[in-house]
């Protein structure tokens, strides 16, 4: 049985990477073929188009819950800073890194508003 693996490392550049100048205008929504279920604070994502599944930890789950097509990256960043004991800069770096991974794996779509 294959071991779980960290999804696409955030260090890998991609044409889909989040544009940091667009954080206040970049809306995030789940891809149509992705279904998510939360269990005990963690989230399992199933991509029906590829058959792959993914798990998000507690913080990843909080971020995913706000990717409903209504919140911008800046909105989600504000939620993290308000709710968690974390420096603003670190929260933003981690948020952008995770969003990049989710977009690169085809789990999230981003669009401007």
């Amino acid at each position: 049985m294959a071991d779980p693996q960290q999804a696409t490392p955030p260090s890998i550049a991609s044409e889909h990477a989040v544009d940091r100048t667009m954080l206040a205008r970049s809306i995030l929504r789940p891809s149509p073929d992705v279904q998510g279920t939360s269990m005990e604070g963690e989230t399992v994502l199933l991509d029906l188009s590829t058959g792959r599944y993914y798990t998000l930890n507690r913080l990843g789950s909080v971020i995913w819950e706000h990717c409903t097509g209504h919140s911008t990256i800046s909105d989600i960043h504000a939620v993290l800073c308000d709710r968690f004991e974390v420096a603003s800069e670190r929260a933003l770096d981690d948020l952008v890194a995770l969003v990049n991974q989710l977009v690169q794996e085809g789990l999230l779509q981003q669009e401007g508003r």
Partner: peptide
């Protein structure tokens, strides 16, 4: 405001095997 904030951990995404020999 003395509201206690939750502890922070780095958000992570883990990919699992294909949905199985």
């Amino acid at each position: 405001n003395t509201e206690k904030k939750e502890s922070y951990v780095q958000p992570s995404l883990v990919k699992h095997e294909l949905l199985k020999d």
